[in-house]
Amino acid sequence: PEEVRRLVEELYRKGVSPEQVKKILKKQGIDEREIEKVLRRIG
């Protein structure tokens, strides 16, 4: 979803590592598979 992409990109631009991005967003209840999809697209 758009909102997940925005959150991931925001953290990524701040220099947060992909592993940390995953941890942070998982705590917020976001599906890990969604996060990984976005990270793959960015990375």
Results as ranks from 00 to 15, higher is better:
residue 3 E to Y: 11
residue 23 K to D: 15
residue 3 E to M: 10
residue 23 K to E: 15
residue 8 V to M: 03
residue 32 E to N: 05
residue 5 R to N: 08
residue 34 E to G: 02
residue 15 G to R: 03
residue 41 R to F: 10
residue 11 L to H: 15
residue 14 K to R: 12
residue 35 I to K: 00
residue 11 L to E: 02
residue 22 K to V: 14
residue 42 I to F: 07
residue 19 E to T: 10
residue 13 R to I: 10
residue 19 E to C: 13
residue 13 R to H: 14
residue 24 I to G: 01
residue 1 P to M: 14
residue 35 I to R: 00
residue 15 G to E: 03
residue 34 E to P: 00
residue 9 E to L: 09
residue 31 D to R: 04
residue 43 G to L: 03
residue 15 G to L: 04
residue 28 Q to R: 12
residue 16 V to A: 13
residue 32 E to G: 06
residue 5 R to K: 12
residue 27 K to D: 15
residue 14 K to E: 13
residue 28 Q to T: 09
residue 11 L to A: 03
residue 18 P to N: 09
residue 5 R to L: 12
residue 27 K to Q: 14
residue 43 G to N: 07
residue 19 E to F: 03
residue 2 E to Y: 04
residue 6 R to D: 06
residue 41 R to C: 10
residue 1 P to T: 14
residue 35 I to Y: 03
residue 1 P to A: 12
residue 10 E to L: 07
residue 37 K to F: 03
residue 9 E to C: 08
residue 17 S to D: 12
residue 11 L to S: 01
residue 12 Y to W: 10
residue 13 R to V: 10
residue 26 K to P: 01
residue 20 Q to K: 11
residue 17 S to G: 10
residue 22 K to Y: 08
residue 33 R to M: 11
residue 8 V to D: 00
residue 25 L to G: 02
residue 33 R to H: 12
residue 6 R to G: 06
residue 24 I to R: 05
residue 41 R to N: 15
residue 35 I to E: 00
residue 19 E to D: 15
residue 36 E to F: 01
residue 2 E to Q: 11
residue 27 K to N: 14
residue 20 Q to F: 09
residue 33 R to N: 13
residue 20 Q to Y: 07
residue 38 V to E: 15
residue 4 V to E: 01
residue 8 V to P: 00
residue 25 L to N: 00
residue 15 G to D: 05
residue 6 R to I: 09
residue 13 R to C: 09
residue 29 G to W: 02
residue 39 L to W: 00
residue 18 P to W: 09
residue 30 I to Y: 14
residue 28 Q to M: 13
residue 17 S to K: 10
residue 32 E to H: 04
residue 2 E to L: 10
residue 17 S to A: 12
residue 40 R to H: 15
residue 3 E to V: 10
residue 31 D to K: 06
residue 39 L to A: 05
residue 32 E to S: 07
residue 29 G to V: 01
residue 19 E to I: 08
residue 2 E to G: 09
residue 35 I to C: 01
residue 7 L to N: 03
residue 17 S to F: 05
residue 12 Y to I: 15
residue 38 V to N: 11
residue 38 V to F: 03
residue 30 I to V: 10
residue 26 K to V: 15
residue 42 I to G: 05
residue 16 V to K: 11
residue 38 V to H: 13
residue 17 S to T: 12
residue 10 E to V: 05
residue 13 R to L: 12
residue 27 K to F: 09
residue 30 I to R: 03
residue 38 V to T: 06
residue 3 E to N: 11
residue 23 K to T: 14
residue 4 V to P: 02
residue 36 E to Y: 01
residue 12 Y to L: 15
residue 2 E to C: 05
residue 43 G to W: 01
residue 17 S to P: 13
residue 20 Q to G: 12
residue 28 Q to Y: 10
residue 5 R to T: 12
residue 21 V to F: 02
residue 31 D to H: 06
residue 40 R to V: 13
residue 30 I to G: 01
residue 22 K to T: 11
residue 28 Q to F: 10
residue 8 V to K: 00
residue 5 R to D: 08
residue 12 Y to P: 00
residue 16 V to W: 11
residue 36 E to N: 06
residue 15 G to Y: 02
residue 34 E to F: 05
residue 40 R to P: 08
residue 3 E to I: 10
residue 4 V to K: 01
residue 20 Q to T: 11
residue 7 L to G: 01
residue 1 P to L: 14
residue 16 V to S: 08
residue 4 V to G: 01
residue 2 E to I: 10
residue 24 I to Y: 05
residue 14 K to T: 12
residue 39 L to I: 15
residue 8 V to N: 00
residue 38 V to A: 14
residue 40 R to C: 04
residue 27 K to V: 11
residue 41 R to W: 11
residue 21 V to C: 04
residue 41 R to P: 13
residue 6 R to H: 09
residue 33 R to E: 15
residue 36 E to R: 01
residue 30 I to Q: 03
residue 2 E to R: 09
residue 7 L to T: 05
residue 11 L to Q: 02
residue 29 G to H: 04
residue 28 Q to G: 06
residue 39 L to S: 04
residue 10 E to H: 07
residue 41 R to E: 15
residue 37 K to I: 09
residue 43 G to C: 08
residue 7 L to E: 03
residue 27 K to R: 13
residue 9 E to A: 05
residue 40 R to N: 15
residue 32 E to F: 02
residue 31 D to V: 04
residue 42 I to K: 05
residue 15 G to Q: 04
residue 1 P to V: 12
residue 29 G to Q: 04
residue 5 R to W: 09
residue 6 R to S: 08
residue 40 R to A: 15
residue 24 I to T: 07
residue 26 K to Y: 07
residue 23 K to Y: 06
residue 18 P to T: 14
residue 6 R to P: 02
residue 35 I to M: 03
residue 31 D to T: 07
residue 18 P to Q: 11
residue 14 K to Q: 13
residue 20 Q to E: 14
residue 14 K to Y: 07
residue 3 E to H: 09
residue 29 G to I: 01
residue 38 V to M: 10
residue 17 S to Y: 07
residue 32 E to V: 07
residue 3 E to K: 08
residue 1 P to K: 09
residue 25 L to R: 00
residue 34 E to V: 13
residue 33 R to V: 11
residue 31 D to E: 08
residue 14 K to H: 11
residue 28 Q to P: 01
residue 12 Y to A: 09
residue 7 L to R: 08
residue 28 Q to C: 03
residue 41 R to V: 15
residue 7 L to P: 00
residue 21 V to I: 15
residue 40 R to L: 08
residue 7 L to I: 09
residue 7 L to V: 07
residue 36 E to K: 03
residue 22 K to Q: 06
residue 43 G to T: 12
residue 42 I to H: 07
residue 23 K to G: 12
residue 7 L to Q: 10
residue 16 V to G: 04
residue 8 V to S: 01
residue 28 Q to A: 12
residue 6 R to Q: 11
residue 31 D to W: 02
residue 43 G to A: 15
residue 26 K to N: 07
residue 7 L to M: 11
residue 7 L to D: 01
residue 37 K to T: 06
residue 2 E to P: 08
residue 31 D to M: 05
residue 8 V to Y: 02
residue 25 L to I: 02
residue 4 V to L: 15
residue 43 G to I: 15
residue 14 K to P: 03
residue 38 V to W: 06
residue 7 L to S: 04
residue 25 L to Q: 00
residue 3 E to F: 09
residue 1 P to I: 13
residue 11 L to R: 00
residue 10 E to K: 07
residue 16 V to T: 10
residue 18 P to E: 12
residue 33 R to D: 14
residue 4 V to D: 01
residue 35 I to W: 02
residue 43 G to Q: 12
residue 11 L to W: 05
residue 41 R to D: 15
residue 42 I to Y: 05
residue 21 V to W: 02
residue 1 P to W: 13
residue 22 K to H: 09
residue 38 V to D: 02
residue 41 R to L: 15
residue 37 K to S: 07
residue 20 Q to D: 14
residue 23 K to P: 04
residue 34 E to Y: 05
